[in-house]
């Protein structure tokens, strides 16, 4: 499994409790949008951000969160913050 696939799997485990579209979740890919595709309640997107912070021991500032609407954007932000640790 590549690093990216591993990260997608980790992210999938984090977002599972909040998804409301099982089909889109099964087919999750980089361009999956949290709200439009997975039907995640936008208030729960804050929980996902907090869960990511806890898991990777990073801080996601509001400017980074601003763009966190898709799996791809989330992966990029995690990668960027982890590398700066």
């Amino acid at each position: 499994m590549s690093d990216k696939d591993k990260m997608i799997e980790e992210l999938k485990a984090l977002i599972k409790p909040y998804i409301q579209d099982e089909e889109a979740f099964k087919n999750l890919h980089e361009n999956t949008n949290f709200i439009e595709d997975l039907k995640i309640n936008s208030a729960n997107l804050v929980d996902i951000v907090l869960d990511i912070e806890d898991k990777y021991d990073i801080e996601i500032d509001n400017d980074s969160m601003d763009k966190m609407l898709s799996v791809k954007a989330a992966l990029e932000i995690i990668e960027q913050k982890v590398s700066k640790k």
Partner: peptide, 18 residues
Amino acid sequence: SKDPNGLGWKRPGFIEKI
């Protein structure tokens, strides 16, 4: 609430973020 500890809006960091 669906967050891991079921704290909802009382979860540390939640209020400050939004």
